[in-house]
Design a protein around this nucleic acid. Structure first.
Length: 737
RNA sequence: GCUGGCGUAGCUCAACUGGCAGAGCAUCGGUUUUGUAAACCGAAGGUUGUGAGUUCGACUCUCACCGCCAGCUCCA
């Protein structure tokens, strides 16, 4: 007998091997029909999976219906199978890889021999899926020992599945037993669980979305697969609602709004991933920067400035150079004088063959020698002109500079420029420092992934005793900053080292552990919920990252606070302690916004371009009713500007309705309508973006109102928050089977 | 970087299988002098991303490059 405990607390006895479906039937026919799957002791299982006793304790069972979020996940997993089955019918011989669910749908990676699937095939695939759904055949589970499972997959000619079994499932991972699910002619190696039959997927409640390339198990060297994305629901209406919501989200995309409102632009002539801030975007960013700068000054930070380049040796010393060579702009090479002459002469020769006689062989030989190329004349003269230039560039480099990929090395040199006493610590050096990273072309995206960006960076140098306090203060600063902007939908990740990864080998284990413990205990102390991520740490230390989601559901790292015991060591930083002995300071790297560009991107989406008054590029616009009120309107504008408000005036020969409409579309927080009535009484008619016409009031009252709202940084517009969807399964889970 | 898709006026989009590149909005000029989300008339605006090729003829077909989009990979 097995004891089953239901969510209402009741415990009932059933015979061994009873299935959730049988239990549901015992409760009521309606429940049995509605049930999709079940949760047994926290694990989601098929409705027809016999329940077995693990311990003496009763099995806690919950039946899942279409109302449960977990059920939707099961449905989507089954949808992936249905899609794969449809593809197999249309394109026999298709190789299947993995078909997991995501937070908003599902995908299946596959390879169709001899052709590729395109979006034009979607209608046919969807039609085939509809037939499968209509047939409503059951998903039947069966299990095989690994060896037989392998043979079975081989028999199905599913070589990717065979490979996966060999690589990861051949060990006694799942008790040496692998499960399969059969749907009519279609069988797939799969851990499950699944919906009882295909008919549970509502008619028309699924849709193929897009197709993209993917790598088999993420290996860039391996075969490229096609990933078909789709989504599904229990009901067609839910699908429609979801699709409508996706459309809405697209309207908030910062790339679109940035263009519409003239906030920023990107010019291919300047370069991909290099942001050009237009006046309006610059105004918003400027407000953010001064807001943060004020907060920093209050907290004892000292602003500094450092240049955009630094010698390669700086990054060799810091240790950044070898790790991040790939993602840097190539070094600027400066040649010695002789080499410069030589290259100039050679380049001239390349351009203009006729006058090549300018560089005599004697002169060339002399330059080659004094430039320090290190070749004999006969070796040298055997080379082509182009090869010579290349060689000189390589061999005769006097100095190399990097566009700085981070600010910390520069800041260490400011710290090191003075003798430091323990009484001086902590030293907090802050800078809006622009850094450059050569991101892969396919990675660039609007403001969120760029090649040049400005960090609201600071480095704190403190004694070991001060670490926890400083770390906590920076976490609180970040929280304060985010909440001041109405951003609450973020999460904190403790990014730890991964002992397996050689990247972290340099650091002594003890120090790392201590740093990670410090961070963890502060997070706990602050009662900040967080998740741990091994292998996400910087090479010099663990960190706490703030992750925020954009309107399309993509997650981005914004603020970060990092502990660093490595760079002070590498740069030999010191302070004199109370014991009159030199000691090593600890560094804390921190950036509440992270990157100004990325943060602006998130903020644009967060407010859908409708910034609160204190951030708005244009805070208020004067709208004269007609030319007759123009003179008065000008005096109103002058008063607004005198009060320090970002104000403008609309002098077009348009009707007031059109001026209002345009100002609304440009998301101006406030409008002052002035006509003859107002001109005569010295008043303005105040129109609020959200609340509409507020009626006439004295100009001074309007200004007070605006100044008050500006100073208190009110956020009145309820932020449109993207629906918080559960995380996609962890990668390990995705690749289970 | 990889896979796939896309690139027509400042913006949003038309132009059947290869056969004279068009509309709305924005812009400019004029008329209108307006009371809380779009006044009216007119003009101008293009080597169809760039460069080759196929063809009597290319926005349309082919190739290369540039850029953008989705995803993969990467992300100090």
């Amino acid at each position: 007998m097995v004891q089953i405990k239901l969510p209402d607390g009741s415990v009932k006895e059933y015979s061994e091997g009873v299935t959730p479906r049988q239990i549901a039937e015992g409760i009521g026919k309606r429940l049995a029909d509605a049930a999709v799957a079940a949760v047994a002791n926290g694990q989601i299982v098929d409705l027809d999976r016999p329940l077995e006793h693990g311990t003496d304790a009763p099995i806690e069972l919950k039946l899942l219906t279409s109302r449960d979020r977990e059920a939707l996940d099961v449905l989507r997993h089954s949808s992936a199978h249905i899609m794969a089955r449809a593809v197999m019918r249309l394109f026999p011989g298709t190789q299947l890889a993995f078909g997991p669910t995501t937070s908003t749908g599902f995908y299946y990676d596959m390879r169709v021999p001899g052709r590729s699937i395109s979006e034009e095939d979607f209608p046919a695939i969807e039609a085939e899926m509809a037939r499968i759904v209509e047939a409503a055949e059951p998903f039947e589970r069966f299990a095989l020992p690994v060896a037989e499972a392998r043979q079975f997959c081989a028999g199905l000619d599913q070589t990717l599945k065979v490979e996966h079994i060999d690589e990861e499932l051949s060990l006694d991972k799942y008790g040496g037993i692998l499960s399969f699910y059969r749907q009519g002619e279609f069988v797939d190696l799969c851990r499950g669980p699944h919906i009882p039959h295909a008919g549970k997927l509502g008619a028309g409640a699924f849709k193929l979305l897009t197709i993209a390339g993917s790598y088999w198990k993420g290996r860039t060297t391996g075969p490229v697969l096609q990933r078909l994305y789709g989504t599904s629901f229990f009901d067609r209406k839910e699908l429609d609602a979801h699709l409508a919501q996706v459309e809405e989200a697209k309207k908030r995309d910062h790339r679109r709004i940035g263009k519409e409102l003239g906030l920023f632009t990107i010019s291919p002539l300047v370069g991909s991933g290099l942001i050009l801030w237009m006046p309006k975007g610059a105004a918003v960013r400027g407000q953010l920067e001064s807001f943060l700068k004020d907060e920093l000054i209050k907290r004892g930070y000292q602003p500094v400035y450092t240049p955009h380049i630094g010698k390669v040796d700086l990054y060799r010393t810091s240790g950044h150079y070898p790790y991040y060579k790939d993602s840097q702009f190539p070094p600027l090479k400066l040649l010695n004088d002789e080499a410069i002459q030589l290259v100039l002469a050679l380049e001239k020769k390349l351009e203009d063959q006729a006058s090549s006689s300018e560089l005599t062989a004697e002169a060339e030989a002399a330059l080659v020698k004094s430039a320090g190329i290190g070749l004999t004349w006969s070796e040298w003269s055997a080379l082509s002109t182009r090869a010579k230039i290349e060689l000189v560039n390589e061999k005769a480099t006097a100095e190399e500079y990097l566009l700085k990929p981070m600010n910390c090395p520069h800041h260490t040199q400011i710290y090191a420029a003075l003798p430091r006493s323990y009484r001086d610590l902590p030293v907090r050096l802050a800078e809006f420092g622009t850094v450059y990273r050569y991101e892969q072309s396919g990675e660039l995206s609007g403001l969120t992934r760029v090649r040049g960006f400005t960090q609201d960076d600071a480095h704190l140098f403190c004694t070991p005793d001060q670490v926890r306090g400083e770390f906590r203060a920076t976490m609180e600063l970040t929280q304060h900053v985010l909440s001041s902007l109405g951003l609450s939908d973020y999460k904190v990740r403790l990014s730890r080292s991964d002992p397996e990864d050689p990247k972290y080998q340099g650091a002594a284990g003890d120090i790392w552990r201590r740093a990670e413990d410090d961070i963890r205990s502060v997070l706990v102390e602050m009662q900040l919920p967080f998740e741990e991520a091994p292998g996400e740490a910087a090479f010099y230390g663990p960190k706490a990252d703030f992750l925020v989601r954009d309107c399309l559901g993509r997650q981005w790292q914004l603020g970060t606070v990092q502990l660093d015991y490595v760079l002070p060591e590498r740069f030999g930083l010191e302070y004199i302690g109370a014991d009159n002995q030199p000691h090593r300071p600890v560094m804390i790297h921190r950036a509440p916004f992270g990157s100004m560009e990325r943060f602006m991107g998130i903020l644009i989406e967060h407010f859908a371009g409708a910034f609160p008054l204190w951030l708005a590029p244009e805070q208020v616009r004067v709208l004269p009713i007609s030319e007759k009120a123009e003179a008065y309107a000008q005096t109103v504008l002058a008063e607004l500007q005198k009060a320090g408000l970002r104000a403008s005036i609309d002098l077009r020969s348009e009707k007031i309705g059109a001026k209002i409409r345009d100002a609304q579309l440009e998301k101006l927080p406030a409008m002052l309508v002035v006509g003859q009535k107002e001109a005569e009484s010295g008043q303005v008619s105040y129109r609020d973006r959200l609340e509409g016409d507020k009626g006439a009031m004295p100009l001074s009252a309007a200004i007070d109102r605006l100044l008050e709202e500006n100073a208190s940084r009110v956020i009145r517009q309820a932020a449109v928050v993207a629906p918080t969807a559960p995380e996609p399964p962890a990668s390990e889970e995705q690749h289970a089977y």
